[in-house]
Amino acid sequence: MASQGTKRSYEQMETDGERQNATEIRASVGKMIGGIGRFYIQMCTELKLSDYEGRLIQNSLTIERMVLSAFDERRNKYLEEHPSAGKDPKKTGGPIYRRVNGKWMRELILYDKEEIRRIWRQANNGDDATAGLTHMMIWHSNLNDATYQRTRALVRTGMDPRMCSLMQGSTLPRRSGAAGAAVKGVGTMVMELVRMIKRGINDRNFWRGENGRKTRIAYERMCNILKGKFQTAAQKAMMDQVRESRNPGNAEFEDLTFLARSALILRGSVAHKSCLPACVYGPAVASGYDFEREGYSLVGIDPFRLLQNSQVYSLIRPNENPAHKSQLVWMACHSAAFEDLRVLSFIKGTKVLPRGKLSTRGVQIASNENMETMESSTLELRSRYWAIRTRSGGNTNQQRASAGQISIQPTFSVQRNLPFDRTTIMAAFNGNTEGRTSDMRTEIIRMMESARPEDVSFQGRGVFELSDEKAASPIVPSFDMSNEGSYFFGDNAEEYDN
């Protein structure tokens, strides 16, 4: 783990906690998980779902989305002020799938948001429990990260689609708070800032007046979040320049895209947490497990152990491969979309394939898809080993990566060399080191050039047997250095459309 220093740990961010010791953190995270579980059980009762239907990941996603929508204050306010045809701002819903006479049927349900809020609060001892809501947002974000390569979004903001390893959390809503900021990748933060800068260039009043003052505060806050992700002084200094700019424009845009590229080699610290679907927490609570009393951590053995003992089902389209669908969801559960496939294969105990080789589309089923041909199958979400999630980018030494994705962002704290394609990355730096950030740029390029592919990161860190909950005997895996390590390699994943 990167030293926490003055930073709060993510469990504290996750639970809005002030400084807590490890036991208190485990208890408050457990409380959050228990609340999600209780809410899910109650919703299944309301909807009269069978046990099997309640364990269907598509039903879980609909129920999670309903509660997130019920608590989305800004959108609710907007919907009330701008009524649109056929949208009731006070209601929320989605597809629920039921097994009827041996076939899967889709039923569109509609609930009062007020009623959903009441059920959620009741499951969370009367609190709004925003930490639990954020947790579900991060699960949705991790699922998107594993399912889609955001080529269009990258290109629109002047970045290269091969930089997708920097895009963790790119679909997280803005209201996801400190826990959300911690899991956002460098590219995601750059993209958010670039969008602001572009608006400022096109709209003279963007930075002016009372609204402009708020915009400015948001801009500086985002700059500080991004600065905190960088691990070298030169990158941090460049972020200070971007933040202090009187009138952010093209120079800042250039600096930010430069920094994003540099992060492929001088990786930023991005938190990883295993956020599971509500249909995993519900049955665990129903079986009598007391998360608050037992304590829970999002970055240790607990999620692995929970998945070892969970039964989750998914709808499967006619030509999809259930094992591939399982891999997709497994990666999402562990926030591992940008991790090295060699490491993932070792931990999972079966070969993890790149996205383009998977015969599976996303987990969600569109409303126009034919239910007649839908089957369902068990998702295999178990693992051979477990490993500690990392909050750091690993040290800054790398190795060759593949054509589709030119770097990785480690999820697990496991000893290995970190793949990246130096030639491709360095070719993108057209040696432009003039301007006010020239000395920093020169320094950053120097550090990137001296990074050695064969150097090892996370020295001495290994994986653990599932029986080793105290992480007492690390097993340090050895990897084939020459092997392909990137998930979005030469990829044809669908595009994420909101």
Rank of each mutant, 00 (worst) to 15 (best):
F258R: 01
T433V: 15
S50V: 12
R38S: 11
R199W: 06
A182M: 06
V363C: 15
R441Y: 07
L68C: 12
N59M: 05
A218P: 07
R99S: 10
G132H: 02
E114D: 12
R391G: 08
A428K: 10
N101H: 13
R118M: 15
M238Q: 15
V100S: 15
A401Y: 00
V29K: 07
T92L: 02
A332P: 03
I365Y: 04
R293Y: 15
M191G: 05
Q409A: 12
G393C: 15
N59E: 02
T151E: 03
I445P: 01
K77G: 06
R106I: 11
D497H: 10
T257R: 00
V190H: 02
M13E: 03
D290Y: 08
G349Q: 07
Y296H: 15
V270N: 12
V155H: 04
Y496I: 08
G37A: 14
G295T: 08
G37L: 08
G5Y: 04
P95E: 04
F412K: 03
V299R: 07
F464D: 02
T151C: 03
N483I: 11
T171C: 15
A387D: 09
V414H: 02
R342A: 09
R55I: 08
Q405L: 03
G435E: 09
F458D: 05
G300E: 11
I201T: 11
C44T: 13
I41V: 04
V29D: 09
Y487R: 03
G30C: 03
A233V: 05
N370Y: 15
I201G: 01
A278M: 15
I301T: 14
D480H: 14
S486Q: 06
Q409T: 09
A278E: 01
G460W: 11
S473W: 01
I119P: 02
R213W: 06
G288D: 06
N309Q: 13
N125C: 15
I316M: 14
R267Q: 06
G177F: 05
T433W: 00
F304A: 12
Q311Y: 12
M163F: 15
D160I: 01
M191A: 02
N309A: 13
R216N: 06
P354K: 10
A427E: 10
R261Y: 08
Y313F: 13
M1N: 12
F479W: 05
E449A: 07
V194Q: 01
I138A: 03
R441P: 10
A260S: 15
R75V: 04
E339S: 00
M440R: 06
Q308S: 09
Q405K: 12
D290H: 09
S170Q: 09
P95R: 08
F253L: 15
M447L: 09
Y52F: 14
G200V: 12
L172F: 08
K227W: 05
R8P: 10
A131N: 05
L56Y: 01
D421Y: 15
K77D: 09
T257D: 05
M1W: 12
L266C: 13
G132Q: 07
I347H: 00
C223S: 12
S69H: 02
R99E: 04
I301V: 11
W386L: 12
E254V: 12
D421G: 09
A493K: 05
D468C: 07
E210W: 07
D16V: 08
L61R: 00
E80A: 14
G212Q: 03
V476F: 00
R461A: 00
G362T: 03
M167C: 06
W104E: 04
G185R: 07
T378W: 01
V476K: 01
N211G: 08
R243P: 01
V100R: 10
M222G: 05
C333H: 01
P474I: 02
A284R: 09
S269G: 13
M448C: 08
D203S: 09
L381H: 02
A323V: 08
E339G: 08
R75A: 04
E494V: 11
T390N: 13
F338L: 08
E443L: 04
F338K: 11
A153W: 04
N368M: 07
Q42L: 07
D16L: 00
T147Q: 15
L353V: 02
K273E: 09
P89M: 02
M371Y: 03
G431V: 15
G37Q: 07
S141W: 04
P277R: 10
R267C: 08
A260C: 15
T45G: 02
M66H: 04
E64Y: 07
L256H: 12
V29E: 05
M137A: 02
A237N: 05
S269V: 13
T424D: 01
N76C: 01
I406M: 15
S486R: 03
V242R: 02
P161T: 15
T396P: 09
I225G: 14
Q364T: 14
C275E: 00
V476R: 06
E443D: 13
R199I: 09
S314K: 00
M374Y: 14
H82G: 06
L47V: 14
I119T: 15
Y496M: 07
A403N: 15
